[in-house]
């Protein structure tokens, strides 16, 4: 349990507070959710636009991360795991992107979430960047995999803010499929 974040005068408050998590993965699967949980590290939090930038500007560019690293920008109180109560009935949109596109895509997706551009209320849980080879993955997690109108709206907003060409596929995957 972390202390509440304070916002200085002049800072611009965000609709939600966020936590940035880092995870160094590997080719081998984790034996249990508990092992995975222990491998997640909260590397910073933000409650205002200014706090987000001061955190973001300390990060290396996603394109320079080695394969099998993950960055998760999630709402405070939601752990970026399928098993979290906020995620257990949810799912994610998955976009595969070339390394040359990932830095801008990650930044734009973060901007859209922090600025509430998705217009789906509390449906958004967070955004994940996963470095793979040869392509990286950008995912947007939402709470309810059966909420078709929110899911469609998230997809349409993603296509717009990332300026995705029509030939780039965007796939939805409920977490229950992953948990099986």
């Amino acid at each position: 349990k972390l202390p509440a974040l304070e916002i200085s005068p002049g800072e611009h408050k965000l609709q939600y507070n966020y936590c940035l998590w880092y995870h160094k993965g590997s080719m081998t699967k984790f034996k249990s959710p508990n092992d995975y949980s222990k491998s997640l590290h909260c590397i910073g939090r933000c409650a205002s636009v200014e706090q987000f930038w001061s955190l973001y500007c300390h990060l290396v560019r996603p394109s320079t991360l080695k394969p099998y690293r993950e960055l998760h920008l999630f709402k405070s109180g939601i752990k970026p795991m399928w098993e979290d109560p906020s995620n257990v009935k949810g799912g994610k949109w998955v976009i595969r992107l070339r390394k040359t596109k990932i830095d801008r895509a990650w930044e734009n997706a973060c901007m859209a979430m922090l600025g509430e551009q998705f217009l789906v209320g509390p449906e958004i849980c967070g955004i994940v960047l996963s470095t793979r080879f040869p392509e990286d993955l950008l995912c947007v997690w939402n709470r309810t995999s059966t909420d078709q109108s929110s899911i469609n709206r998230i997809r349409d907003t993603l296509r717009r803010v990332l300026n995705l060409p029509p030939n780039v596929a965007v796939d939805y995957k409920p977490h229950c499929d992953c948990l099986k």
Binding site: L14, Q15, E50, G115
Partner: peptide
């Protein structure tokens, strides 16, 4: 309450504000 909505351009403008350093 009111939802706090920020456009991308507005957020980008705050990237270099003294409070963001």
């Amino acid at each position: 309450g009111t939802r706090i909505i920020y456009e991308r351009a507005f957020l980008m403008n705050l990237k270099n504000s003294p409070l963001s350093r």
